[in-house]
Amino acid sequence: MASATTFYDFKALDKRGKEVPLSDYKGKVVLVVNTASKCGFTPQYAGLEKLWKTIHEKHPDDFIILGFPCNQFGNQEPGSNDDIQQFCQINYGVTFPIMAKVDVNGDNADPVFKWLKAERPRLWGAFPTVLWNFEKFLIGKDGKVKGRWFPSKAPQSLEPIILKELAK
C-alpha cells in the first residue's frame, strides 16, 4: 500500500479470517509482535500477557497487543489458526488478540509488515527483513512506528517505553 502513511491505513485478518480495519485501534498505543508456538522465544507469550494485563488494567482503552503468528522461521508455527489460538490460551492464558497467520518477509509478506519494516529499518541500515519470531514494533497513538526491537528484548522491559508513549 504505497499511499499508506499510518498503521491505521491497513487491514488485517483476525483469528477467524475476518478482515479488521486497523483504524479500529486509532488513538491507541499498539504493540505488534510476530509470534510462533514452537520457538525458543515462545515463553515470551507469558511476558506479553503480563505486560498486556498490567498496562490494560490502568489504560483499558488506550493500549493493545496484536500477535501475528508466522511460520517463516524454522517451521515454528505449523498449526492452523485454531491450533494457534488453542495453544496460546491453554499454555499461556493469552487474552490479547492473536490475528491470522501471516508472512512477515518475502514477496507474500503481509502489507502491514512491509510497511512496518520500511518505516523502522534496522539500526545498521535498511535491512528489509524481520529477523526471527517475536520481533516487536510499537505504534504510537498517531499511527506511526515509535520503536522496533529484536526478538531477545523481553516484553516486560518495554513497559516504561509504552507508558511514556501512553502519556503523550
Rank of each mutant, 00 (worst) to 15 (best):
K53N: 09
S152C: 05
V33K: 04
W149N: 02
K50E: 11
K53H: 08
L163F: 13
L123A: 11
T95F: 11
K11I: 00
Y92R: 05
G147E: 05
W132D: 01
Q44C: 06
D14P: 06
G140W: 09
G47N: 11
T129P: 06
F63I: 02
G143D: 04
M1G: 06
F137P: 00
P97V: 00
D103W: 05
L138K: 04
I55S: 08
H56E: 12
V94E: 06
E77N: 07
V30D: 04
F73H: 05
P111Q: 15
T5C: 08
V30C: 08
V20S: 08
L31R: 03
Y25Q: 07
I90Y: 14
Y45Q: 09
P21F: 15
F137S: 02
F113M: 10
N133C: 02
P60N: 14
K146E: 10
G140Q: 07
R122I: 03
A36F: 11
P97S: 07
S157L: 13
L163S: 10
I64M: 10
G125A: 07
L163R: 15
P121Q: 09
N34M: 06
A4C: 03
N81A: 10
P121W: 15
E19M: 05
K38F: 05
T6V: 09
V112Y: 13
F87T: 01
L22M: 08
S80L: 08
M99F: 10
D107C: 01
G143V: 00
Q76N: 03
V33W: 02
W149M: 02
D24H: 11
N71G: 01
K28C: 01
K15F: 14
E49F: 01
K18Y: 11
I161C: 14
E77G: 03
S37D: 08
